[in-house]
Structure formats: structure tokens, C-alpha cells
Design a protein around this nucleic acid. Structure first.
Lengths: 176, 176
DNA sequence: AGAACTCTATCTATCTATAGATAGATTGTC
DNA sequence: GACAATCTATCTATAGATAGATAGAGTTCT
């Protein structure tokens, strides 16, 4: 594994394929076609598919934390929340792309513990960030008082993740 | 394809595997092992894996509509909603099993249109039922007035579906 | 009634395509 | 010349799928 531009491109394409088709629904051949190198060269960078998955999650996770930091610079909690939900909407607009961790969650029962842990840390980070935004919003007076901000944060997160999956399936969003 | 008990058993096992592992993550061999017949015999009942998927969706869809009818017999909208959410919780308790249509939705970009249509009809049925329950609850006075019951129904549905996936991934529900 | 036939459901054996993976040669850059 | 990155060629395992045989239950013909 290394951090050169080829490795990065492989990770980006892999991330896209996981988010649009799922972990078990793409192959090294698909990557090969899109990145423009042979499958064996991909193995050079990521010996196994799980190594690739781990690297993709790590990269995506870091990028997401950076986004959250950026959102935290907004003036009000309301704007932070808006920026957060906009990111989901924007992601989905790119070929019905869903959140990486939810795509992997749907395959989770067949993935090794190492990956499951990475994903659970990622999910927790979302909830903690959202809960802190909610608390700030309550203090600011922009949001109404909540009994359990952490639970409310979870509910928002559930709805965001569920909405992406359901939107893919629903005729409301993609009528024939 | 026929409706004998073997075909039914195949469908039930397939449904479980789709809900726990995903459509692309189980094989005819997995079915063969669990049902106790050879893979070739499964092909006798369901010529292709997509034929099997179609049959499973259809069967699951019908069973779900029956459940909704049953829930509609509850005295109040609040109890109907409770029965609905209990069903999700009960399903999830069986080996982190998620809703069939959401599991398939995460693989949707790689599935044929015929299946996509089946799923979208299913999703719409959920939302229509939920919206009617909400309206009834508002009329009864048990629920507070909503500007857009259909949108509220969608939000409930999103949260239910998202919660199952996130619960699978979250350390809050499955700490190490 | 009994022989001949047909249908259902299963089996064994095998096919083709593709998956992820590996060995070893080649190329290009410092 | 050494190393990084890529290639060609190939491997093993498994996927979904198919062909053809078989056992046994039910049907039809004479």
C-alpha cells in the first residue's frame, strides 16, 4: 500500500463503486477498467479487497471529519445542520450515491470485525457531532429544547441514511 | 417455478440471506446447504437468481400487506403505529435482519428494472399506509396536527429503515 | 389389471465465466 | 544498479447455469 496518486485514484473509484453498487457487487476488473491499469497492479497497491476496503473507509472517514470541522465554522447551529444535510443531498445527486458506511452496513454481516469496528467508530462520530450541534442550537435559542439531544441526533442520522436508500427505491423520486 | 413446500422453503431461506447478508453475498450453494437439496434442484424451481429474487419480493410484499391489514384492526392510530414499529424491531432481533426492500435498495443500481419496480411499489405502499394512520391519529386527536402527513409518513419510514442499518453498524447497540 | 407412458422433483456431472490472487518479466526513474 | 510501478500470464476457487439420468407417483390405453 502507498499514498501515490494511483492508489488514491483506485480508492476514489472503489469508494464510488461501494457507494453506488455495494461492496460485493464490484470487482477488481471494474476498478481496472475505470482506473486504466491491470487488476494485478491494483493488487500491488492493495493486496486484498479487504485491504482496499479498509483504506477506503479510513480515507473517507478522515475526509468526512474534515467536512464536519468545516461545517462547525458556520455562525449558527442551524446553518451547520443545513451544511450537513446539504452534503448528503449533494452526494446522492452523484448517481444515487449513498453514504459509504451505510452501504457497508448493509453488507456488514459478511465483513470481518476489523472493518465493523472502523464503521462503528465512524457512526459514533456522526452522532456525537450532531448532538453537539443540537445542544449549541438549543443554547443559542434557534432550536427548541430537547429532552435527549443524543437520541435526537441519532434520529436525524437514521432519517438521513434511510432517506438515501429509500429515495433510490421510491417512485416518488424516480418515477417511470 | 411452483408453489410446493420446497419452493417455499427456498424462498424463506433466500429472504433471510438477502436480509442478513445482501443479494450479492449469498450463493446457490448457501441455499443448497441450508435447504438440503442440490443447487441444480434450486434451478429447477427458480431458473435464475433473479427469478428467485422476484419470487421472494412478491412473497414478502404480500405477507407485509397482510400484516398492515392486521395492524389496521387496532383500536387507535397510536396502537397501529406501535404494532408497525414493533414488527421492525422484532425482525431486527432475528440476526440483525433488515427490511428486504432496503437490503435490495442498497444493491439496486445493479438490479434489473423489473425488480426495481417491484421495490418501488412496496415502498410506496408503506408510505401510503403510514400517511393514512397519521391522518386517522390527527382526527382522533391522539397525534398533533401535521402540515403534510405524507411527508411525515416518509420521515417515519426513513427513520425506521435507517435505524436498522445504523443499529447494525453502531457500537451503541453492539458494543465490543 | 397391467403395460406403457408422462410428469415432478431430484440427482450427478459438467460447463463457462469470473472472482480474487500470485509469480515473474519489463519498464522507467533516480 | 536499485527500486517502484506496471505488465503478461496464469492459478485456484467459486459463481450461476445446464445436460442428461433416475426414481417414483399418477395417468392412459388396451
Amino acid at each position: 500500500m502507498n499514498n501515490g496518486s494511483t492508489a488514491l485514484k483506485i480508492m476514489e473509484v472503489a469508494s464510488e463503486l461501494i457507494q453506488t453498487h455495494g461492496f460485493h457487487a464490484f470487482s477488481y476488473r471494474d476498478l481496472s477498467d475505470r482506473v486504466g491499469i491491470k487488476t494485478s497492479s491494483i493488487h500491488y497497491h492493495f493486496p486484498t479487497k479487504l485491504d482496499l476496503a479498509k483504506a477506503v473507509i479510513h480515507h473517507y472517514h478522515q475526509a468526512f471529519l474534515d467536512k464536519l470541522d468545516e461545517f462547525s465554522k458556520e455562525e449558527t447551529a442551524k446553518k451547520m445542520l443545513q451544511a450537513y444535510t446539504d452534503l448528503f443531498a449533494e452526494t446522492f445527486r452523484q448517481g444515487k450515491r449513498i453514504c459509504l458506511c451505510v452501504s457497508l452496513a448493509s453488507d456488514l454481516n459478511g465483513l470481518p470485525e476489523e472493518i465493523r469496528n472502523e464503521i462503528s467508530i465512524f457512526v459514533d462520530a456522526h452522532e456525537i457531532w450532531l448532538a453537539s450541534v443540537l445542544k449549541q442550537g438549543i443554547d443559542e435559542g434557534g432550536f427548541r429544547k430537547l429532552e435527549n439531544p443524543r437520541q435526537a441526533a441519532r434520529n436525524i442520522f437514521y432519517a438521513m441514511e434511510g432517506a438515501m436508500l429509500v429515495a433510490r427505491a421510491s417512485s416518488v423520486f424516480f418515477p417511470n
